[in-house]
Design a protein around this nucleic acid. Structure first.
Lengths: 334, 334
DNA sequence: TTGCACAATGGCAACGTTAACATTTGGGCG
DNA sequence: CGCCCAAATGTTAACGTTGCCATTGTGCAA
């Protein structure tokens, strides 16, 4: 029993309620031009039959899906969870849904992400870029399909949004200089990371802007082990009183590396990380770090599409600053 | 120019190619009953007009969306990223898409997740449960809408899938006993966690199955700090040679707590965690832990829906075992 | 009483696609 | 030469919804 052979449509509800299909539709949309008692009768019929509006029929009629497609080359990545939180929140706000797709990265092109998504019921596309797509310069979004890229690079035809990596470094460097440190050493990341390179630029240029020649950087590979090695290497450098690491894992590794050489943090050396990813994992260390607002990045991207809602809005580029979170790993020399 | 007023339909392509709409449709689906040269002509027309099949029209006609809805109460949660990777991979395999929705947890009911999703273009629903919904016992899935719950609890009407938490503890306890430890101490988690409680049960029952009365457990709160305190507390217990912590953060905290009391890991005490979440964050410690296969959990859920593809498949319950990953934090006493 | 405005409801068509059935064409064979 | 079959293509209708316009009913002013 209760075996629903086929889905219930407005027609069925209309028949049961003894009204026209149009009146059912109007009731669904709570139009003021339906008498309350009629509405109630229709609603009762809907309940009895278990009516649920059919999305396909509706979209076909309206020519809109109220859905934003999110294309990712890699699902597992720092901050993706928070970004998704943002996607979902913004979509929710606009009455939109999110359709998620993993795009095969061979080739790693915006074109492949875009065409993959365009077969799905979406009104706009968000592409999360992890590295430089081969066609970044030449790509053009599908006509009528607003496309937002999550990247720090600016694109002439697509809006873009990302964390402000340069500003992140600026904040850290100025914070440390403001605490009386004469210079800031840097533990970098592999050169293929766009955001990491931008952090490096920010560190370098901010120091120069303060008339300080950046010291030799130590190259890391994102892991705590590489941070550990960097910490040991820097422990013997008497000019090194402040270290800025490209991520928290390296910062933590660095602290342990310094300790292994008899240096104490923050008494002897100050250390700052980026990412706020240590959370509750480490018991003995409240690291000073920069917290990015990936949720806001995600919201901005979806807002751009769902907020425009047809009205073609212009291309915009947004960089969202992080917030420096003070822990216990920086000493104030002043 | 190239301003696309309205979308191109089969009709437009048909006109340009000088064939019927049906032939266009057949070409799209690469039907063998269209002559190769005709196909080529149609394809050329599609390219020229930039034709993309309309999802709504297709779904309306077919009565299927080829989409699985994923409802989450909390997007940010351990393992969610891996699960999503699994959702996306399985969806891809079946030619399905994933629609993601965050469900407001007030009230925290399966009903609210289900009705939220049912307004969207989905053929089936996956609900990720983080805790016990108020209506778990009474919930019935919408007719014709296959519903899979990601939870360790079994439901009479919905298929379920999750990590096998009991087996995880069994593996850890038997591994430690097999290394000659006489008993295994346990750092638990807050009582509201379903999975945590199941780990606790597994620990207790496996010890009993080996004729060992479980020692007093130490209650933690998932944080490294609580693990640190637990480690300090257990450091003075001479019977404690092996500690099993409900997650990696507490395990790591515990190691540091033991060290602070002069105990060394693994020489004096062995420590095992769960989650494999330390990754590259910690420089000096390759923790023995249990790695869950959340990607497989996600794949199973979507497979169940997309794989059935209309043919109503029965209710199944799946628990996916984790894998014990040997690090350097367990001593073999044999 | 008539006309008119307005509220409530109904009828129809169209959105884009494709299943089912219908038609045309060409070729092989008796 | 006519018949039949198969391959290739065309025609029609329907999926569920809703915008547009038409119709009906009701109360009120002229």
């Amino acid at each position: 029993m209760a075996a629903v052979k086929k889905s219930v449509s407005v027609k069925d509800v209309a028949r049961l309620a003894g009204v026209s299909e149009q009146t059912v539709s109007r009731t669904v949309h709570d139009s003021p031009s339906v008498r309350p008692e009629t509405k109630e009768r229709v609603r009762a019929a809907m309940r009895e039959l278990g009516y649920r509006p059919n999305f396909a029929g509706r979209s076909l009629r309206r020519g809109k899906f109220k859905t934003v497609g999110v294309a990712m080359f890699n699902i597992t990545g720092t901050g993706n969870l928070d970004r998704m939180e943002g996607f979902a929140a913004a979509a929710d706000k606009h009455g939109y849904a999110i359709t998620l797709t993993k795009v095969d990265g061979h080739p790693y092109t915006l074109e492949s992400a875009s065409s993959r998504m365009s077969a799905l019921p979406v009104d706009g596309i968000v592409v999360i870029m992890n590295r430089m797509p081969a066609d970044f310069g030449t790509f053009e979004p599908l006509p009528g399909m607003q496309t937002v890229l999550v990247t720090m690079l600016e694109h002439p035809l697509c809006s873009t949004v990302d964390n402000d990596q340069f500003d992140c470094s600026r904040q850290v460097v100025e914070y440390l200089l403001g605490r009386g440190h004469k210079t800031v050493h840097f533990i970098s990341c592999p050169e293929r990371s766009l955001s990491g390179m931008r952090r490096e630029e920010g560190w370098r240029e901010t120091l120069r802007a303060h008339g300080i020649e950046p010291p030799q950087l130590v190259r890391g590979d994102w892991t705590a082990q590489s941070g550990y090695a960097a910490g040991q290497a820097l422990a013997d450098d008497p000019t090194c009183t402040a270290i800025y690491a490209s991520n928290d894992a390296m910062a933590y590794g660095c602290i342990r590396g310094l300790e292994s050489r008899g240096k104490r943090v923050p008494q002897d050396v100050s250390v700052v990380g980026v990412d706020d990813s240590l959370g509750d994992i480490v018991p003995d260390c409240r690291l000073t770090t920069v917290r990015f607002d990936n949720k806001r990045v995600g919201m901005w991207a979806v807002d751009k599409i769902a907020g425009a809602d047809g009205g073609a809005s212009g291309v915009e580029h947004m960089l969202i600053p992080g917030v420096l979170v003070e822990g216990d790993t920086v000493r104030d020399l002043c």
